[in-house]
Structures are given as structure tokens and as C-alpha cells.
Design a protein around this nucleic acid. Structure first.
Lengths: 201, 201
DNA sequence: CCTACCGATCGGTAGG
DNA sequence: CCTACCGATCGGTAGG
């Protein structure tokens, strides 16, 4: 990696950290320049403008980019193993940089979600691969629709993440807060059925 | 409501719509003034500054403010009825203004979540009331901890909401997208147990 | 890649 | 509640 490429990476990293901390309009090109260690004008040797820089940050750091590819690589012998492994993989990625999700929200709000469709269609295959694997390893899934199963799966991750970062610690005396695996267990009880004696409704 | 109070409400409403559409730093006091139908300087007769105005918007429009009180009023004879009714009540509130949730994210990102703790402790009682009601009407809940039950509940709502607004429509041929009630059903299968014969793990 | 600068717009205020 | 203004800062560029 030559000097110019190195500088470019420094700019992207600096921009990422400032964007997720202060938002798009809350971050100035001057702040990014200082953090990347060059003068304001220098940025424009690498990027045509602020939005182009943001697009590059998204291309590298968007949570879909970090999180969904792991779905394609998940391994396991049963649906339960696949789902537990996928959930932990995704949450692990999210924990690797707790502000990663902010990029998603910033793009939604401040750039009106203009770049989401492209990202979604880019990663839909990983999701399909994962869902097919799950259904292949288990004929005993209650939701007949993979999409529905996936929507519940998303709920487990989001429910865990937001309550994990938001619930006030003092309410622990109202009951155990629980772990990610506890939430997965609830979900698995919801989607797995062991034989037809299990029919409830 | 006298004239001054009326103007104040117009400002708050205009600010709300601009904030959720463009973010905090992406909205200028001049835009708000125009939308509210007065001159820039006029806003400062009602609010000390931009952040004070945002705080008032939050006080009126924050999703917690709109969504959690319904939890305190939910009625039903069984845990299932209570949970279904609460979920529909909350999602209904969210649908009444699809950008309501943006206020939550804007506060998180652009104002660093400084005002969340106050909002959370303000509405914790509604949540507790709801959870107590659920546990009173059903001894057959799998999660021993109400907090854990609640985290799963949050997951249902968030999972539904985000996939509902994000999933590309064309993937419907991969399977039915499902409804909110389908997701609630999965969750209920996860948390309700009908007798001890149901033990799975 | 930096220096020095551009016009535009920002939040906010004085004075009436 | 408006007009007219303030200093500060914005994204971006020319020229070297």
C-alpha cells in the first residue's frame, strides 16, 4: 500500500469515527482532516466531496457489510446450531464496534436511506443461503415461510441489542436481565417443534 | 389557548417534522421559522435556543412518550391477549407517524442519548405494570424473569418494524412475508408453555 | 498535500 | 414578533 492509499485509509477511518459519534451534518470536513492528520484541502485529493467520502465509509463500515456476510459462512448440524451460531456471529460483529449501527441510522435519517436498496440486494444472497441451510437441516420448523423465520431472527438480535444498551441496570432486582442465549432459546421454542404433539393453537 | 401558546405549538410541530426528516444538525432554525410561519427571531421569544426547542419536541413526540403509556392501559384475560393487544397498540402508535422512531435515533446519535435515562425512568412503571399483569394472568410462562420476557417482546416489535420497512418487496416469492400477528405467534410459542410435557431442552 | 481564500449559511441577538 | 445585523463556521477551490 503506497503513501496515497495509506492516507486515504486514514481519512476513511477518521471520517467513520466522527460520523458515528456526531452524525453526518454534525461532522465537518475540518474535523475529519485534523483527525486524519492533514489539512482540509488534502481530503479533496482523495474524495470529490463530503457525500462521496460518506459513501466510501458506508461501503467499508456499514453494519450490513460487517454483519450479513457471516450468515453465509455459518456452520452447524441442526437448525438450532445454525441459528445460535449465526446470532452469536452477528452480535459479536456488532460488539466489535458498538457504534457500528449508528451508520445505518445516520444513512436512514440524514441521507434518507438512498443507499440502502443497493446494500440490501447485495447481501440478500447471504441471507438466502443461511435460510436454505436452516431449512435443509430441520424439517421441524413451525413457520412455513423462511422470510417470516428471518423476521423473527432479526427481532432477536435487535431486541437483545437495544435492551442490552438501554435498560437501566437498577431494574435487575425486578428479575434477571438474561443473556443473548436466553433470548435465542425463547425464539427457538417459538420456531422449532418436536413432533405433532406440540401443536398449540 | 391564547395566541402565544398557539405559535409555540406551531413551532414545536414544525421543528418535529423537520428534525425527523433531516436530523438535528441537518435542520436550521430558519427552516423551522419558515415552516412555522414566522421570522427567525420570533422563535427566540418561545425557546432559549435550538437545543431547548429540541428538548421540547422530545418531551412531546419521543416514541417512548407515545408508545409506552399504552402498556399501562392494556387489558385482557390471558397472557396471550395482553401481549397481542400490547403489541398491536404499540405498533399502531408507531404507524401513526412512521418517522416517530427517528427522534429516538437522532437523540441517541446527535445528542449522545443525554436525555434517555430520564425518559426511561419516567416510563419504567408502565412497563412494570404491564409485566405484572401478564404474569398475574398466566402461571405458564417459560421465562422466569419478567425482564427477559420484556426483552423478547421488544424484539418482536423491532424485528417487525425494521423488516417491514426494509425488506425488498420482490423477495415475496421466496415465501410469505408474514404479518405482525405471525411474529407474535412465534414469540408466544416461545414464552408460553402448556403443561410440563412441553419441555424441550 | 498545504495555504489562503471564496460565498453561503449557521445560531443567535439588539433594538424597536 | 420582525428587521437587520453579528461573528463563527461551513463545504469547497485556486494556485502553487
Amino acid at each position: 500500500m503506497n503513501k496515497g492509499e495509506q492516507t486515504k485509509q486514514l481519512i476513511i477511518e477518521a471520517a467513520f469515527e466522527l460520523f458515528v459519534a456526531n452524525g453526518y451534518h454534525g461532522t465537518s470536513m475540518r474535523q475529519i482532516a485534523v483527525k486524519a492528520g492533514l489539512a482540509l484541502g488534502g481530503i479533496y485529493n482523495h474524495f470529490a466531496g463530503k457525500e462521496e467520502l460518506f459513501l466510501e465509509v458506508i461501503r467499508v463500515y456499514h453494519p450490513f457489510m460487517r454483519v450479513l456476510p457471516t450468515l453465509g459462512e455459518v456452520e452447524g448440524e441442526t437448525a438450532e446450531e445454525l441459528i445460535r451460531s449465526a446470532t452469536h456471529g452477528i452480535v459479536g460483529q456488532m460488539e466489535s464496534h458498538p457504534k457500528l449501527l449508528n451508520l445505518f441510522f445516520i444513512e436512514m435519517i440524514e441521507l434518507e436511506g438512498r443507499h440502502l436498496p443497493a446494500l440490501i440486494t447485495l447481501f440478500a444472497p447471504s441471507v438466502f443461503t443461511f435460510l436454505q441451510k436452516v431449512y435443509r437441516h430441520a424439517g421441524n420448523l413451525r413457520p412455513e415461510s423462511p422470510i417470516l423465520l428471518f423476521r423473527g431472527f432479526v427481532g432477536v438480535i435487535l431486541g437483545y441489542w437495544f435492551t442490552h444498551h438501554l435498560l437501566p441496570p437498577q431494574l435487575a432486582n425486578f428479575g434477571a436481565i438474561g443473556t443473548l442465549d436466553d433470548l435465542i432459546t425463547i425464539y427457538l421454542h417459538g420456531v422449532l417443534q418436536k413432533g405433532e404433539s406440540d401443536e398449540r393453537r
